[in-house]
Design a binder for these strands. Structure first.
Lengths: 238, 238
DNA sequence: AATTTTAAACGTATGCTATACACTTTTATG
DNA sequence: CATAAAAGTGTATAGCATACGTTTAAAATT
């Protein structure tokens, strides 16, 4: 046996084609609660069960494109940000056959969300600590995504993707408290957030939650895109 | 058009089967240098070019299993640790056809490495800052893996996977300096490392690199597996 | 007009951690 | 016995995380 043929025998195997899916873990934020978008599963197995938003990758589209296509069709949102989470590839993860699924997660600004799509697709937002049993390994995916979100939130200013363009510091704090599932100190939180110098204080107040009213802020996207390049210029230790 | 059929038209598409590969970014450490394992590509396209270690996922094995099989066949090592890095899924990433590749990275203790396999597979270790042009998108994969390694190294004691069982603090420092590609202060480094209280100082010295000799240490695996569960008990800010 | 109510805004003191920095110890070698 | 080469060790300083309570603004109520 030559070396070459030995190599082939031991580890070189011809490729076998598999189904490749993408599943999207979509987070939203509303009224102080972090939410997850789920919908009724449209295909067997487990048709009709609650599940993440997903679909199959086509031959002529990248993984990113597939995730984008599916998420856009289902939320109506354009230009949303998607991050790849993990490729789930257990042999028996889909009881209907071998499917490798690449999970993506996304943060959605609920203001931009087309509510009518919820009905159209039998979808709904549920509170993050109230997730039902989902199809296949989707609960595992959702949990991983929440962990990833927590990691992200400490090294990147992710708030502006989940909040409206103008938001107050108390709102932002509620978001972080929802993500990390614990109360934070108001003064320390504001110090940490403002230290990064990425928020612009506006001359407007939001009086919807208090008589005094809270100042509105917006993210300084210009400054952010400048510093994004040089690593760890943003940092929130939570 | 019913709602259901509209759904199908817009975003539900039948699955198309694709080739799924795994590629492994294998790091080693020797003589103060961080190394990457590459081999001659065995298949078209770009047959003969340097590339990462890779192969196709079979129908009856998980992604993890495929990566493990391929890496084990190529290094002879058992029980090595593999982490999934990212799924690379551009349509044209493989010029020979549509292949989605899930990249894994691994840290190898060079002492355990069967050197004869290097010749058998036309493989070699190259210094991390001396990587040639690799096949397909493998350079991109290697770069991502190095970034992931840097992140890992600051939150987990990964040293023991790249070093022999017994090692000296200067050796460990060289490893971190190689990973982060910069010099560190000896005294501060030792303080940070020892503070985690995961190293056991032995009564032996390694005199291979100095007349005085440096004390050998080993990782306290027991203690590590105990604390591993409760998050962020380990922390090296670099 | 004065009082009450509600949430927002704000500052300081303390302890911990990262960092900067230089001399002494050991022992093989000549 | 002198030299050389790397290992080992401590302190002072600045920045950051944390804990903690009072004042301010403005609407609502009397």
């Amino acid at each position: 046996m030559t070396t070459q043929s030995k190599v082939n025998n031991i580890f070189y195997k011809e490729g076998q084609k598999l189904l490749v899916a993408v599943d999207c873990i979509v987070f939203g934020f509303n009224r102080g609660k972090l939410k997850l978008l789920i919908m009724e599963r449209k295909i067997e197995p487990q048709k009709g069960k609650w599940s993440l938003i997903g679909g199959f990758v086509q031959k002529d589209e990248s993984l990113d494109q597939a995730a984008y296509r599916i998420l856009q069709a289902c939320t109506g949102i354009h230009d949303m940000h998607l991050d790849q989470l993990y490729a789930f590839g257990e042999v028996d993860r889909d009881t209907g056959g071998r499917v490798v699924s690449v999970a993506y997660y996304s943060l959605i600004n609920l203001e931009l969300f087309e509510q009518e799509l919820l009905k159209e697709y039998n979808a709904k937002w549920i509170n993050i600590d109230d997730i039902p049993e989902l199809a296949l390994d989707h609960n595992k995916m959702a949990n991983s995504a929440l962990e990833a979100l927590q990691k992200q939130a400490s090294i990147k200013p992710i708030g502006f993707e989940l909040l409206p363009e103008k938001f107050t510091l108390p709102q932002l704090q509620l978001l972080y408290e929802a993500i990390y599932n614990r109360k934070m100190d108001k003064r320390n939180f504001q110090k940490k957030i403002l230290k990064n110098d990425l928020l612009i204080k506006l001359d407007e107040k939001d009086k919807s939650t208090s008589k005094k009213g809270a100042y509105l802020y917006r993210f300084d996207l210009d400054k952010y895109s400048k510093i994004k390049s040089n690593e760890d210029s943003f940092y929130i230790k939570v």
